[in-house]
């Protein structure tokens, strides 16, 4: 019984690793391999990056929506909210300011 748990968890990591690898390759290929518009390339990189973040959180950090203790999840969601506010706010403010300098 113990062994099956071990195998299951090992598989978990391996799936995570494989998916991350694929997404990494996709992102690099979008920039290096194919000739797309800049916007399309950026979109692919962004989607692949976010997907990989979710994959690693799911498979390496073992966090998912169902079984997690609520406080951990609250904490992560709140962190993401503040990260968005601070980073997004900075980019908005500084970008707006730069736009008015020229």
């Amino acid at each position: 019984m113990k062994n099956t748990a071990w195998q299951r968890e090992l598989k978990h990591y391996l799936i995570g690793g494989l998916l991350s690898l694929i997404l990494t390759v996709v992102a690099f290929a979008a920039v290096l391999g194919v000739d797309l518009s800049r916007a399309a390339t950026l979109a692919i990189v962004a989607v692949a990056g976010v997907a990989q973040l979710i994959i690693q959180v799911r498979y390496f950090l073992h966090i998912d929506l169902s079984r997690q203790k609520r406080e951990d999840l609250h904490l992560i969601l709140f962190s993401l909210l503040l990260l968005t506010l601070m980073a997004g706010g900075t980019i908005w403010i500084m970008g707006d300011l730069a736009g008015r300098m020229y």
Binding site: A27, V31, G49, L53
Partner: peptide, 23 residues
């Protein structure tokens, strides 16, 4: 946790700094 977290940050770095930088 720390080690996996650093990999997460690295995803941000290679996407935002490097890939978006030369795209």
């Amino acid at each position: 946790l720390y080690w996996h977290f650093l990999d997460l940050v690295w995803i941000g770095i290679f996407s935002i700094v490097f890939l978006a930088g030369v795209a």
